[in-house]
Design a protein around this nucleic acid. Structure first.
Ligand SMILES: [Mn+2]
Ligand SMILES: [Mn+2]
Ligand SMILES: [Zn+2]
Ligand SMILES: [Zn+2]
Lengths: 137, 137
DNA sequence: AAACCCATGCAATAGAAGTGCATTTTTATG
DNA sequence: CATAAAAATGCACTTCTATTGCATGGGTTT
């Protein structure tokens, strides 16, 4: 089992207190977090620091960025050995219209999508909206 | 062949000069338009009017709203008899990473997506990014 | 003609995202 | 250990999209 420090170092991310805290926050959260969620969790810290920390995580590919259509970017830790870049590895995301939370469905990969002749597919974003398991009962 | 006036009236949208112009603008455009595109096309008109006109069109379901992941909402006329709401009728959208335009692939319906037990799917947003036919050559 | 509804215009606000620069903290180097 | 360099953090400010309140005015209805 890798420690958080090891995860960060393996991606050439300097270990700082703030980064450890944010990583842990994302790891414990079962749903994708907005920057504003992170702000609320760390009120002492400056917004810019949180913003840049998450940005670093995204650039170094330990966090992926989710556009669920709400207009607010969400973030979630990548799975181990995830290759966010590779099209065939991407999972789909579910956004609950009731509780407003967004969940990574890491076991549900995106099916092959056909595009017209002449078009070249590089990335795919697939978001399903509806009711999550907690809200559908 | 329905006139624009008839289209609007059939959806209980009052016909005004502005609305006819915006409808025509969207009809002639081959790609999805941003509010800012519409602004540039009608510099004499107030932004709010354009905003509310498009909003009306969306609410009355003659225009659909596209979130292509750029963070800027795009708009495109619905196909005739389109039912934007119904999951099975939705087409996918293509966003070109080069020319930055977004295109409705109205002939490419979204495949059936499986979600985990307990989740209820109501809408699906599928955006493919890459190179469009004009940019891939 | 009068009353009313609704589209339009203007001004202001909200909210997310991003940037420049000063300061502090960490790391590297002698 | 002392010091210089590099990187992270904090604060202020900006940009850009989206949205709302309120006044005005044109068209519709009675
Ligand atoms: Mn995810
Ligand atoms: Mn479309
Ligand atoms: Zn829910
Ligand atoms: Zn293109």
């Amino acid at each position: 089992m890798e420690t958080i420090e090891q995860v960060l170092e393996s991606k050439n991310i300097r270990v700082t207190a703030m980064r450890l805290l944010i990583y842990k926050f994302l790891a414990e959260k079962q749903v994708a977090a907005t920057l504003s969620d992170i702000e609320k969790a760390f009120e002492k810290a400056d917004r810019t620091t949180l913003y840049r920390t998450v940005k670093t995580f995204v650039e170094k590919a330990i966090v992926h960025q989710i556009d669920d259509g709400t207009g607010i970017t969400k973030y979630a830790l990548c799975e181990q050995d995830c290759s966010c870049e590779i099209e065939t590895d991407l999972h789909l995301h579910f956004h609950c219209n009731n509780c407003n939370e967004t969940i990574c469905l890491t076991d549900h990969k995106i099916p092959k999508i056909k595009v017209p002749d002449g078009f070249i597919s590089e990335q795919i974003n697939l978001v399903v909206k509806g009711l999550c398991d907690k809200c559908s009962a």
